[in-house]
C-alpha cells in the first residue's frame, strides 16, 4: 500500500514539475520527484540504487540545474532581433539599443546578457523574473502590466497592403491590437515577412523600423513582395521603449536617471543619428 502511495506521489511531482511554465519550479519539482523515486527504489528492495539516486539525482543534478539557471550579477535582457536597434553580428550583439544597454550595464555595475526570445513570451519571462528587462523594438500592448522606460526612438505603426488577402502581425506585438478578427499572427518578424513573400498574406501591421528592414533586404534573399507599390495607412504614433516588471522600481529609477543623463549630454541623439541615418 505504501509503495502504491509513493508511486502516486512520484508521478504527481513529475507531472507538477513538467507542466509548470516557470523553469525554476520545474527544476525544484524534478528534484523532489527524484527524492520520492529513491523511496520507491527502497520499496523495490534496491537500497544501493536508492542511495545513489538520493545522493546524485536529488542533490547534485538539482544543483547543477539551479547553477545553469543562475545569473548572479547579470542584467538579463529578453529581446527580439530588429536590424538597426538590436541584432546579432557573428558572436557579437550590435545596434542602437545594445549601445544604450551596454552603457547602462556599466552604470549599474552588471554584465548585460541578451537572450533572443519570441515576442509573445516576453510578458511571461518578465513576470516570472527570468529576465530583468525587455528590449529589441519593444512596443507595449494595450493593458500590458509592465513598467516602461521613457521613449527612446519615435516610430509609427502602419498597415501595409500589397494585395487582397488576410492581414498578419507578430504575435504579442502592438500590431496585434490592430488586427481585424480574421488576421493571422506569426512568431516573429522574419516569419511574418516570409509569409508575406509566399503570398499567404495580403498585408501586415508593422512599425516603420521593421518595414525599413524588409525594404533593405528586398531582392537579396528571394523576398519579393512588391512593398514599393504597397498601400500604407498610418495607424498610430508610438515610440520604442524598454520594459521592466512592475516591482522592479529601483532598476526603473536607475534606467530613467541614466537615460536622462544620456539625453542631456547629447550622447543619445548622436547614437540615434549614427544608427538610424
Amino acid at each position: 500500500m505504501g509503495a502504491v502511495l509513493l508511486c502516486a506521489l512520484t508521478l504527481t511531482l513529475a507531472a507538477f514539475a513538467l507542466t509548470r511554465r516557470r523553469l525554476l519550479w520545474g527544476v525544484i519539482g524534478v528534484g523532489a520527484h527524484s527524492l520520492a523515486l529513491a523511496g520507491v527504489y527502497l520499496f523495490l528492495a534496491a537500497p544501493d540504487v536508492a542511495l545513489a539516486e538520493a545522493a546524485i539525482g536529488f542533490a547534485l543534478v538539482t544543483f547543477i540545474f539551479l547553477l545553469a539557471l543562475r545569473r548572479t550579477g547579470r542584467l538579463v535582457v529578453a529581446a527580439t532581433e530588429v536590424y538597426p536597434l538590436l541584432y546579432q553580428e557573428g558572436d557579437k550583439i550590435a545596434g542602437l539599443e545594445w549601445e544604450i544597454l551596454r552603457r547602462f550595464g556599466q552604470w549599474v555595475h552588471r554584465d548585460v546578457e541578451v537572450l533572443w526570445v519570441n515576442r509573445a513570451d516576453i510578458p511571461r519571462l518578465l513576470a516570472a523574473g527570468e529576465t530583468d528587462l525587455a528590449a529589441g523594438g519593444f512596443l507595449p500592448r494595450e493593458g500590458a502590466t509592465v513598467l516602461l522606460s521613457p521613449p527612446l526612438v519615435p516610430t509609427q505603426l502602419v498597415n501595409v497592403r500589397c494585395r487582397p488577402g488576410p492581414v498578419g502581425a507578430v504575435a504579442g506585438d502592438r500590431g496585434q491590437d490592430h488586427l481585424p478578427p480574421d488576421g493571422l499572427t506569426y512568431e516573429d518578424a522574419g516569419e511574418l515577412a516570409a509569409a508575406l513573400a509566399r503570398g499567404e498574406l495580403g498585408g501586415a501591421v508593422v512599425d516603420l523600423v521593421r518595414l525599413r528592414q524588409w525594404l533593405l533586404s528586398e531582392g537579396t534573399n528571394k523576398t519579393h513582395f512588391a512593398l514599393r507599390d504597397a498601400e500604407m495607412t498610418p495607424l498610430e504614433d508610438l515610440a520604442f521603449r524598454f520594459a521592466l516588471v512592475p516591482h522592479e522600481t529601483e532598476l526603473h529609477q536607475a534606467l530613467e536617471e541614466f537615460l536622462k543623463t544620456l539625453a542631456s549630454t547629447g550622447e543619445l541623439e548622436r547614437l540615434i543619428t549614427e544608427h538610424l541615418q
Binding site: P47, D48, A50, L51, A52, A55, I56, A59, F63
Partner: peptide, 18 residues
C-alpha cells in the same frame, strides 16, 4: 558488506563540498 559503495559515497562527499 551492505548497501553503499563508491558511487553514492562519492556523491555524498561531493554534496559535502557543496
Amino acid at each position: 558488506l551492505g548497501p553503499g559503495g563508491g558511487f553514492p559515497a562519492g556523491a555524498i562527499l561531493g554534496s559535502g563540498l557543496l
